[in-house]
Computed example of a mutant assay.
Amino acid sequence: MNLGEPNKENMHFMIENMKTNLRVVNGSIISAEDFNLDQYEDIYDLYRLVEKKKGKMTTMELEGILAELASMRKITDA
């Protein structure tokens, strides 16, 4: 898998791995479908940060990454 290639499959892979590495309790709150493909580079940057700091992240870093992901989510009408 070449994560340098922006596509939905890679985005899904990165989001799912970040949820696991960040130990997100309610994984349903973050879904690859919640993000636009034009945000791929930002997601990729966050993914690389999470992979680099795997298991060594402070609470503030964890909260910051989750807040960044939340701010990038698409707004959907209910």
Rank of each mutant, 00 (worst) to 15 (best):
D34E: 10
K74D: 03
S31A: 10
S28M: 09
E68V: 04
M1P: 10
E5L: 11
G27M: 11
N10Q: 08
L46S: 03
R48G: 01
L69M: 15
F35Y: 15
L62H: 14
M57R: 12
E5K: 11
T59G: 05
E51C: 15
F35W: 03
D42Y: 00
K53S: 12
R73C: 14
G64H: 02
A32P: 15
M18K: 07
D34V: 02
K74C: 10
E16A: 09
A70L: 07
H12Q: 13
N36K: 13
K74M: 14
M14W: 07
I75T: 11
F35E: 03
L66D: 08
E61L: 09
S31W: 01
Y47I: 05
K52T: 13
V25F: 13
S71I: 01
A67F: 11
K56W: 00
Y40A: 01
K52M: 12
M11A: 12
D45L: 09
E5Q: 12
H12D: 12
S28R: 13
V50T: 04
Y40P: 08
M14L: 07
V50N: 04
N2M: 04
G55A: 06
S28E: 14
A67W: 05
E9W: 00
N36I: 00
H12A: 15
Y44D: 04
M60Y: 08
E9H: 04
I29F: 09
Y47T: 04
G55L: 09
L3Y: 11
L22G: 08
L3I: 14
S31I: 00
N17A: 04
I15H: 07
V24G: 07
N2V: 02
N7M: 06
I15R: 08
D45S: 09
L69Y: 05
N10C: 09
N17F: 02
E51W: 01
V24M: 06
K74N: 14
K19W: 07
S71Q: 06
D45T: 11
H12S: 12
A32R: 00
Y44P: 00
V24D: 04
M14A: 07
M57F: 05
E51Y: 02
M1Q: 10
S28D: 15
N36H: 09
D34F: 13
D77Q: 07
I29T: 14
M72L: 15
E16N: 15
V50A: 06
A32F: 12
T59K: 08
M60D: 14
L37T: 00
V24T: 10
K53L: 14
Y47G: 10
G64K: 03
M1L: 10
S31Q: 15
I30Y: 15
L46F: 07
N2I: 05
Q39G: 03
K53D: 13
E68H: 05
D42P: 00
K8H: 02
I29C: 11
L69N: 07
T20S: 12
N21W: 13
N36P: 00
L66Y: 04
D42A: 04
